[in-house]
Every structure is written in C-alpha cells, then in structure tokens.
C-alpha cells in the first residue's frame, strides 16, 4: 500500500459518500445519471467476484463490500425510493449504456490477460469503468445548473483514478510490480474522459462561479 493508492481509495470512497449524502439527506438525485450508477454497480459486481475466494487483506475486503453495498443501494434509491425517484430526470438521462456494455464485453473476450471467466470479467469491469462516466457527463451538459454536490461527486470520481495512475507508476518504480497494460490504458482513457470536466470545474472553483459545462 502506498500514499497514492490509499488516497485514491479514500477519494473514491469520498465520492460515493458525497453521492449517498446528497441522495439520503436531501432526498434528491437531480443531475445524477442512473445509467452511470448502474454501470458502476456492474463494474463492482464483475470485478469483485473473488471477494470470498481470494483474500487479499481486511482492508481490501471491507472496501469491496462498501463499494458493492453503496453502488447497489444508490441504484435502488434512484429506482425505487418514492421520494428520490421523483427527482430523477428520466427524460434527460437517455444515454443507452447497453451500447457501452456490449462493446466492452466483446473487447474483454478478445483482449484480456488470460482467457478465464474471472480474468475476462475483471477485464470487462476495467473497460466498463473507463466509460461509465459518459452518461453522467452527457447529463451534466444537458442540465444547466450543476449543484455543488454533483460537481464534487464527479470531481472526486475522476480524481481517484488519476491517483491510481500515480500509484501504478510508484509501484512500478519501487516494487518492480507492474500492472497489465490493459489496466494502464483503461485507467488513462478513464482519466482523460474527465479532462474537460476538470478544466471547467477548477476554473469555476477559481473564479468562484457556478459550474457550467459548454453545451
């Protein structure tokens, strides 16, 4: 464990907590894409298949349980909670995420480290996570006023993978531990997708103006 990876995990955890706080306290999911939340639930479900078979550490298991529990409960809240679901802008959140899932599945079957069920599912989860934010970014561009919590959520979610890239560099340099090039490229694509959001978010924060993404 190194500082980049720990801060990456904590940033990821913070993003989930910010989102849960928004949904649970103000009972609103305005501006949040259910499609992105469903994709993240899929990411964790396919990445943590080995949660009970391969024990890595207590920390690892606890964090996996937290990510699984929170991602599925957010999807449940947005779909079934009688108050929260009313604030879900269904008409705007129209990204057909099946068009993301299928190509990721095909790619995972073709480009993977080892052709085993677990490894293909793990690779699939990497590809899905790389593009999972797209429905949310599309929704942000459609909904004019982005509230602070939603902006913070997306920022933290993007920052965590950027910290993971630093972690991979650090581990390669110090532990001679390499992560597969699939992980590198997926992580890079994922972080680059946030590039313009980061630009507008940091600018709005510096100029202390409301976050507005160009249409």
């Amino acid at each position: 464990m190194n500082i980049f990876r720990l801060s990456g995990d904590m940033t990821h955890l913070m993003s989930v907590i910010v989102l849960l706080l928004k949904i649970h306290t103000i009972k609103s999911c305005a501006g949040i894409s259910l499609k992105t939340q469903e994709l993240y639930a899929l990411v964790f479900a396919t990445r943590y298949l080995d949660i009970f078979t391969d024990f890595v550490s207590v920390y690892n298991t606890i964090m996996k349980l937290i990510f699984l529990a929170t991602s599925f409960s957010i999807v449940w809240y947005m779909r079934h909670h009688k108050i929260v679901r009313r604030s879900y802008d269904k008409e705007q959140d129209t990204f057909r995420h099946l068009f993301l899932i299928l190509p990721c599945l095909i790619l995972a079957l073709v480009v993977n480290e080892k052709f085993t069920f677990k490894e293909v599912m793990w690779t699939f989860s990497l590809y899905v996570e790389a593009v999972a934010i797209l429905p949310q970014l599309v929704l942000l561009q459609r909904t004019k006023n982005i509230d602070n919590l939603t902006g913070q959520y997306v920022f933290l979610l993007g920052a965590y993978r950027a910290l993971y890239i630093l972690n991979w560099i650090y581990r390669y340099l110090t532990e001679k531990h390499f992560v597969h090039w699939i992980t590198w490229i997926s992580g890079l694509v994922q972080t680059l997708l946030y590039a313009d959001f980061f630009y507008y978010y940091i600018n709005s924060w510096k100029n202390n103006v409301r976050l507005q993404l160009p249409a």
């Binding site: 080995d50 964090m63 001679k176 390499f178 597969h180 992980t183």
Partner: peptide, 10 residues
C-alpha cells in the same frame, strides 16, 4: 523478476 499482477488493488 517482475511480479505478475494479482489484482490486489480495488
């Protein structure tokens, strides 16, 4: 000898 990635990360 570089160690294989055993997916010990989240």
């Amino acid at each position: 000898e570089e160690e294989e990635d055993h997916h010990d990360e989240l």
